[in-house]
Design a protein around this nucleic acid. Sequence first.
DNA 1: CAAAATTAATCAAACGATTGATTAGTTAAA
DNA 2: TTTAACTAATCAATCGTTTGATTAATTTTG
Lengths: 224, 224
Amino acid sequence: MINFVRDKKKMEKEKTDKKDHILDVAERVFAELGYDGASTRMISGEAGVNMAMLNYYFGSKEGVFLAIFERRITTFQTVLLSIGNDDSINSWEKLDKYLDSYIDKVVTNNCFHIMLNREISKSKKNELTDQITDIIMKNVTVFQNIIAEGIKKGDFNKDADQQLLVATIFGTKNYIVNTPHISSRVLGFDVLDTNIQNDVLKPRFKKYMKTLLKAYLQNENDNK
Amino acid sequence: MINFVRDKKKMEKEKTDKKDHILDVAERVFAELGYDGASTRMISGEAGVNMAMLNYYFGSKEGVFLAIFERRITTFQTVLLSIGNDDSINSWEKLDKYLDSYIDKVVTNNCFHIMLNREISKSKKNELTDQITDIIMKNVTVFQNIIAEGIKKGDFNKDADQQLLVATIFGTKNYIVNTPHISSRVLGFDVLDTNIQNDVLKPRFKKYMKTLLKAYLQNENDNK
DNA sequence: CAAAATTAATCAAACGATTGATTAGTTAAA
DNA sequence: TTTAACTAATCAATCGTTTGATTAATTTTG
């Protein structure tokens, strides 16, 4: 067996790569089978590591689950927050930017969002669902503020139902991303195919969402 | 011990009542914890029956799951189908009727729809997800046909994205019903409270959905 | 009608399999 | 040599299911 010479830098890189690899696999398996349906043996098996490594690295199965979260949420939320707080653009532009960023992210990281929504859909509360709720609410609040601000400024129709509009944008996204078997049959192509996602789904989804929101939020006496 | 005189009719009633009771409980527990998260012990325990009764009546855990489906889908789908096939009303009225029936049903039977959507959100295909997909697609197809017909007739805007509109109506519904922790915080009330559902949620949801679809589907040169 | 035979409903106990987790020991790196 | 990375073996607990036995209800028989 050949023994490579590896410096410390390289090692650390490989270590985090290994942990990252485990999380990649776990994220996919959790999305495929759900948290309860996915076993630690299956995850470690597909990741090509010993089962005990999951506990060695992440402490427990739940630790793996939470590690997946921490990896995804931080950068994403700061991006959305910065859009919400950008005072140099008007409400319509904010809406556009938010939708562009949001749709890009959730379509690309669909495994994560499938996993996330499966767990939050458990109607019985527990520590985990509370944590997930808080995470999701941060994204929701940014969107809500954009709408509320737009209405206050007079850019958006004041009769709009802010709360249910939240349900529409996030619900529409969830439908496409989280139930791929259904949405693929409705749309006529495989929504999980990366190429189709980038070339067809994302632009079409963005365009649709903007048109829909414009139709609903536009003041009745306005013309475009 | 008193021995009641009971005719055959009465007996059968009680038997189906018991099976129905088990399915009621199972439906709730599945919604609370997911299919994998809910154990047969827990279901039988909460239903107050011996564990073996689940297998005696329904063959297996999956049998319980499928029995819940058969109980719910039949009547519901015929109602929606009859609306879709009603030629005495125009497309706008069909849309209204469909939304009224659909929203009433899914909000009331929220446990069932939570359960249904949790399982279909597993991205790995299996026999069960295929069955659920077929069931869901029937409801979707009725809605799609209403939209397609309306566009063909010229009632609806021909530039409308039919497919993504499907994602919006069913997605918005799912968001409200399937993630009650989130939607309750967004809306500011408990979406699982039966009284609130009937007095507040249903009428508001119907009104919103109709307004949204009208804004999007209305021909640009039309006035109401 | 009454006794016997048959069927349906229910139960506690136990089955083998699988779960998440831990151990004690080995290998590799610093 | 000390520490970190990794492994095979094993743990108790829980899973869905099955069993054999028992009770209750119904039908058949004499």
